[in-house]
Amino acid sequence: MRIRLLSVFVDDQEKALRFYTDVLGFVKKHDVPISGEDRWLTVVSPEDPEGPELLLEPAGHPAVAPYREALGADGIPLAQFAVADVHAEFARLRELGVAFTQEPLEMGGVTTAVLDDTCGNLIQLLQQPKE
């Protein structure tokens, strides 16, 4: 068994696609119309194009808003992305206007930071210690 696809709910799929590709640097993998304006829209890491996909899923279900509101108020991220250098990503993304709810923080060799994806989610960046 392998992890193939995970999803984050996004307020606006087109805006989310721009953020996840133009700002974060992922690439679009699948973009298939589903119903109305909803699309089956996934991105992957350019470093691992055959790796797990992230589905940018429409946030229309009524349970999504209270769920994300409660997690957001407590600053809890909904996904975690591995980066080589959290401090460098923090500097690069802040320059692009990305808001962080937690600046880079190093604890026990692990460095993390938490950013707002502008589509309703917090995302944690994670840098693990070099082997």
Binding site: G75, T101, Q102, L105, M107, L122
Partner: peptide, 10 residues
């Protein structure tokens, strides 16, 4: 200026 998540992490 820390979120509850950051305080818990620390």
């Amino acid at each position: 200026g820390q979120t509850l998540f950051e305080i818990c992490t620390r």
